[in-house]
Computed example of a mutant assay.
Amino acid sequence: MSLEQNLFEQLKLDYRQIIINYFVNNEASRERIDKFINKVFDYNLPIPKIIEIHMDLIDELSKQLKVEGRSDDILLDYRLTLIDILAHLCEMYRCSHR
């Protein structure tokens, strides 16, 4: 596995933890998001890759919920996670170009 693939897999694991804990409003969740955004920024990961990570994870969770016989409607709320991540990242890019 290449360094880029390792990074991508680590980011997917990090994002999974962000999703799982996103609606738990605590300092650890905010720190996890900040660390993720810093990694993405440092590695100059393209926005479509972040969206790919999000969509892959949501797809996995949807399949899991269907196997369990549960509705995946709740996953729509996790669009907020993606919006939050992208907004913070855009702010970092904006501030870096001053």
Rank of each mutant, 00 (worst) to 15 (best):
F36W: 00
D59S: 15
L76F: 09
L86W: 04
N38T: 06
M1S: 08
L3I: 05
E91Y: 14
V40N: 01
Y15E: 06
Q17Y: 09
I85Y: 04
D14E: 03
Y22K: 08
E52D: 11
R94Q: 13
I19Y: 02
P46H: 10
S71C: 03
P48D: 04
E4D: 11
I51Q: 12
K35R: 05
E4A: 11
I33D: 01
I85V: 11
D56R: 03
L57E: 01
S96M: 13
K49H: 14
D72N: 03
E9F: 12
E27R: 07
A87N: 15
K39H: 11
H54F: 01
S62L: 07
E9I: 13
I83K: 10
F41K: 02
I33F: 00
L61H: 10
N44S: 13
D34C: 04
R70N: 14
Y78I: 05
Q17R: 07
I53R: 05
Y15H: 08
H88F: 13
V40L: 00
L89H: 08
P46L: 12
K66P: 07
K12Y: 05
N25Y: 07
T81D: 10
N21F: 00
E4Y: 10
I51N: 11
K35H: 03
N26W: 01
K49D: 15
E60A: 07
E4K: 12
Q5I: 13
E52K: 11
Q10V: 06
N21C: 00
D56P: 02
Y22L: 07
S29Q: 12
P48W: 04
L13R: 13
Q10L: 10
F41Q: 03
L13Y: 09
D56I: 03
H97V: 14
C90E: 14
S71E: 05
D56E: 07
D84Q: 10
R16C: 02
R98P: 11
H97W: 14
I33C: 00
E68G: 11
K63Q: 12
N21D: 00
R16M: 04
K63R: 12
N25P: 04
K12F: 03
I47H: 00
A87F: 14
L57H: 03
D14A: 02
N21H: 01
I85N: 04
E68S: 14
S71L: 06
I74H: 12
I83Q: 10
C90V: 11
D56M: 01
N38V: 06
E4N: 09
E68P: 09
R32I: 02
D72A: 01
Q5P: 06
L13T: 10
I20D: 04
I85D: 02
L13P: 02
L7W: 03
L7V: 02
E68I: 12
I20Q: 02
A28N: 11
K12R: 09
Q10I: 08
K35T: 02
S2L: 05
R32V: 02
R98T: 15
N6F: 15
Y78T: 05
M55A: 10
D56F: 01
K49Q: 14
K39L: 09
L45Q: 03
M1E: 06
N38R: 08
L45C: 06
L89F: 08
A87Q: 15
R16E: 06
L3V: 03
A87S: 15
I50K: 06
K49P: 09
D72I: 00
L3R: 05
L45A: 01
S2V: 03
L86N: 08
V40E: 04
I20S: 03
R79Q: 15
R79N: 14
E60T: 10
